[in-house]
Amino acid sequence: MLLAVIRREGVDVPALCEHEAIEPCGSCRLCMVEITKKEWDGWKNHVTSCLYPVEDGLIVSTHTDQVMEIRKTILDLYMARCPGSEVIQKMAEEYGIYKTSYITVPDADNCIMCYACTRICEVLGKSAIAAVERGHRKVIAPPFGDVPPDCIGCLSCAHICPTDVIKWNDEDGTRTIWKKNFELITCKECGKNIISREFADYIIEKREVPAEYFETCDDCKRAEVARKMGSLVTRAKEVSL
């Protein structure tokens, strides 16, 4: 897509809803650019570069007055929607916006409704959460607002969220996210938390990775490697002596 080419050329175009691991969806509209087609008599249009297929001979303007105006307005709108988000604030400041011109949305949280979480969950093959309702009431939620039956507690949604709104908690060998509790696998050597049992089971089943790989933490596994190789070295030395 066009955005990748723009970035490859070292031009900075902002984007919030875009991530390599998910299909572009064009929700944040910050990556909007102006395109001109020479062969169509200089026909111009504004497009989201994350979704626009690359074409030969296309003229792309990334920082025209109109484009900047759109980005500013969008960030201004975000400031009204997510007054508490540092990511948004920082981005907005770069465009000279310190305070929203609009009416702060009541009961605002930091969700910018970019669908990154639902899209990553879909890539994972679970689609445990989805956008429900329409328009301004739209929220990301598990089915029926209940505990999501398909969630495996992998935290991908929380990690990919650009504004860090999806909260989770690991405590006493239990992970909680979307109000669902998961057993955490703890290292059989040192007791450190590894990943949720359901996530591990999912990988084991889907990708045929041996289950015992998930029993110890990375530190203990490295120590084990050192011990095993060490004993080989020791034996080799003994043999040569």
């Binding site: 390599e20 990375d218 596994k221 490697v225």
Partner: peptide, 21 residues
């Protein structure tokens, strides 16, 4: 590919030699 990585830590858990960190 850090651009694609979501930091789910699956590889960290799965590597039998503890070498994804």
């Amino acid at each position: 590919n850090l651009e694609r990585c979501v930091k789910c830590e699956a590889c960290v858990a799965a590597c039998p030699f503890g070498c994804a960190l």
